[in-house]
Design a protein around this nucleic acid. Sequence first.
DNA 1: ATGCGTGCAAACGATTTGCAGAGAA
DNA 2: TTCTCTGCAAATCGTTTGCACGCAT
Lengths: 132, 132
Amino acid sequence: MRPEAPEGTRRTAQKRAIRGALEEAGEFVSAQQLHQRLDEAGVRVGLATVYRQLAGLAAAGLADTISVASGQLYRACESAEHHHHLVCETCGKAVEIDPPETWIRTAARKHGYTVTGHILEVFGRCPECAAA
Amino acid sequence: MRPEAPEGTRRTAQKRAIRGALEEAGEFVSAQQLHQRLDEAGVRVGLATVYRQLAGLAAAGLADTISVASGQLYRACESAEHHHHLVCETCGKAVEIDPPETWIRTAARKHGYTVTGHILEVFGRCPECAAA
DNA sequence: ATGCGTGCAAACGATTTGCAGAGAA
DNA sequence: TTCTCTGCAAATCGTTTGCACGCAT
C-alpha cells in the first residue's frame, strides 16, 4: 500500500479566504494576525484552521516562513524568494537586497545539507549618512 | 519614583557557569539545551535563571540570538566575525561555512552603502537527519 | 454516501513571572 | 544588613491536537 499523500484537495471557503488574506497582506504576518484580519473582514474561520492552512501552504512551498521571537511568520510565496535588507545603522533606512541563493545552495550541498531557511542581515551606512 | 535600572551587578556562580557554558558551546544553543548541559556537568541552576541570564547577555550585546521554529537560540558573541554556520534544525549539528564576503560588498556598493557588519545563518537538515 | 477539512476546547511545550529565601556587597 | 539574584512553581502565550460534525466530492 502506498498511502501517497494527495492531501489538500477539497476546495473550501476557508482555504480560499486564508490564502487570499495571506497574499493580500503581502508582508510577513503571524497566524494570529491573519486570523484577526479575516475576522475583521467578516470571515469567521477557526484559529486552528488558520494554523493548519498556513502550515500546509508552507509545506507545499506556497508560502515562505520565518521565525521571530514572538512566533512564526508567513508570507505568500508567489513572487520571488524571501529577501533581506541592507540596513543603515545611522538613519535606519533599509534597501532590499537579493540573497546569495546560489552561494547558499552550493555551500549546503557541499556538506550534504538540505536548506530550509536562512537569516541574513547586513549593517552599514547609507550614502546620505556617510556623506554627512 | 525612578527605579532606574542599575541592572546586573552581582557576581554569582550561576552567571559565570551560564556564560561559560554558552561560550564553551560555541554554536547556537537553546536555553533548555544549555540548562541540560549545565546539569550534566553537575552544575545545578534553575531553568528560569538560564533564561534570565541569556536574555540579559543578549540585551547586553554579549550574545547573539536567533529564532527558529522550536524557540530561541543563543550564542556567545565574542567572535561575531567572519564565522558562520550551516545549522541542522533537527539535531543541531553545525558546520562552518565561509561567508559570501564578495557578494556582500558588491550588494552594498550597488546601493552606495558602507558595510560595517553582518549576520548570516543558514538552516537546514544534515545528511543523517534527512535520511531518517 | 464518504471522508476530508473545520471548529472548539483541551493539551502542549517554550518562556516568563510572582514570591520568598540565599548570598554578594 | 541590604538588596540583587536565584529557585520553584504557577501563569502566559503561541501553536498543536483530539473529536464530532458539516460540507465538498
